[in-house]
Design a protein around this nucleic acid. Structure first.
Lengths: 125, 125
DNA sequence: ACTAAGCTTGAATAATTGTTCAAGTATAGT
DNA sequence: ACTATACTTGAACAATTATTCAAGCTTAGT
């Protein structure tokens, strides 16, 4: 094996010279666990719907009942309720019952950080 | 109209006493534009897939060619290429051609902020 | 007790999406 | 010129998902 050939380490995937062999091996080991990646995808997935984003946005400053949200979004109670359930299932919102009404609020402010960071990305282009 | 009734302003949505009438009106006006919300949803949508998240994660430290990524994710070239196109369309990655290979890298570090913020959310529970 | 309001839920439908498959282009090596 | 590699692309398929519809439950007011 010539000096030149020694440098030409082979990637398991490509047969041509590959400068990233060690990095690839490292990344295969260090790769985020399947579970973490899926959870990460899930949380972004919740934020990937305009209706849910509008709900989160509306709840930023104060709690609102379902019919408030319905009014703000100009959507049916059913559609709103379905999306509130998604947000509930991911513990992004909590609610309290008062008579016939259900008052929803953000479970914590952490989701707002993500929301705002995303907004920055959009506005900055 | 009695003093008591004056306080019972009606919400356009609910007929019962609604403490949020003014807030609802305000939110209907201030609501994020449909366009902005859609763009926000779109960017989160891109991040809502495990494959794309893994690609972004792999590209955090250095550029990689398609076959590197293929190897790291244990996926077909076609599947990887399709997802790279999605990332390209949203200007999250850029690439340079070198012979037969295409070397991909992150277009900017902004997306990493979002990625990490999401990761924090997942890890903190 | 009755009626209506506020909200939730399951099924149905239409739309979107991730991967595979088959075929394609472009470059490198012989 | 030929072959194989690296990558891309469009169509097809299965899976997921957002909204609507119809029906339900619970509470408030009469």
């Amino acid at each position: 094996m010539t000096e030149k050939n020694k440098l030409r380490t082979e990637c398991a995937a490509c047969e041509i010279y590959n400068p990233h062999q060690k990095i690839v091996e490292l990344l295969k080991e260090q790769e985020l666990s399947e579970e973490i990646v899926q959870e990460l995808a899930d949380i972004f997935q919740v934020l990937s719907d305009p209706t849910r984003l509008k709900i989160i946005d509306a709840l930023r400053e104060q709690e609102l009942c379902v019919c408030d949200i319905q009014e703000i979004l100009s959507m049916s109670a059913s559609a709103v309720s379905h999306q509130l359930r998604v947000l509930r299932n991911f513990n992004l919102v909590k609610y309290r019952k008062e008579g016939r009404q259900a008052f929803y609020s953000l479970a914590d402010q952490h989701i707002i950080s993500l929301f705002c960071q995303g907004l920055e990305h959009v506005i900055e282009g």
